[in-house]
Amino acid sequence: MARIVKSCIQSLLKMVNSVMGMVGIAVVLYAMWLIWVWQKQMGESPFGDDTDGSAPWFIYTFLGLGVTLCVITCSGHIAAETVNSCCLYLYMLFVILLLMLEAVVTADVFLNRDWEEDLPEDPSGSFTQFKDFIRSNFLFCKWIGLSIVSVQGLSFLLAMVLKVLGPDRYYDSDDDYTPDRVPLLRNSVHPQTYMVGDPIYASKTDAWTIRINEKANR
């Protein structure tokens, strides 16, 4: 029963983790599209220095966020498949750090009215377009953000439950079971041990004595 429950939790963790991976892939694709637009506007490589000497930090930030989500997704799939303690601890650490970063950014946006002044100027204009899109579709973006945070929290809880259950204690092969691990085999009858050696023959004197006794009895 415990093995079935653990298998279900592993499948749920992989499914929830895949949602976070799809979000990471979408963010990477969006960042690549912004890079293509920036390259088209500047007429040169987007990773080179532009004329103003300022880099499009918003594009780089989005690209780094997408890659980070993809890496966390890969570590989550490995942790869910192997049920290894180190992998699960590392995955939970990544998720909790990501949640803390999101909480800090959200608190700064809502509590600090001048939070935009703390950010450098984005020469690509992508940050301004992204900000206007969120303001015009605030309800839609709010539910998407809450869904992503819920998925991350659920993945953290599933990883914690999977860590508590731990790996399988027994092997699948019957030959690997020992009487200490299998109580039903403790009272089993063990086969007798035999020693292999040279055959033992009776001496000739004993054979003649047996024959004489048989004749006397007759």
Rank of each mutant, 00 (worst) to 15 (best):
C86I: 15
A103F: 05
L99P: 05
L97C: 06
G76N: 08
A103I: 07
M100S: 12
Y91D: 13
D114N: 07
G76C: 00
A79M: 02
A79P: 04
N84C: 04
L88V: 08
E81I: 04
A80V: 02
A107Q: 10
I78K: 15
C86F: 13
V109C: 05
W115K: 00
D114K: 09
D118A: 00
A79K: 01
V105M: 13
M100L: 14
L90M: 13
F94W: 10
E81C: 00
L97G: 06
M92T: 08
L98K: 13
H77Y: 11
L88Q: 14
H77E: 12
E116I: 03
Y89C: 03
E116V: 03
T82W: 09
V83T: 11
L99I: 11
L93I: 13
R113H: 11
M100R: 15
L99F: 00
V83S: 08
V83Y: 07
E116P: 00
W115M: 01
E117G: 02
V109P: 03
I96D: 08
L97H: 10
L90S: 12
V109F: 02
V105C: 05
L111R: 02
T82G: 03
C87I: 00
G76T: 00
N112Y: 00
M92A: 06
Y89P: 03
V109H: 02
A103D: 04
I78A: 09
E102M: 07
A80W: 01
E116S: 04
Y91R: 11
T82C: 05
Y89D: 12
L93V: 10
V83C: 05
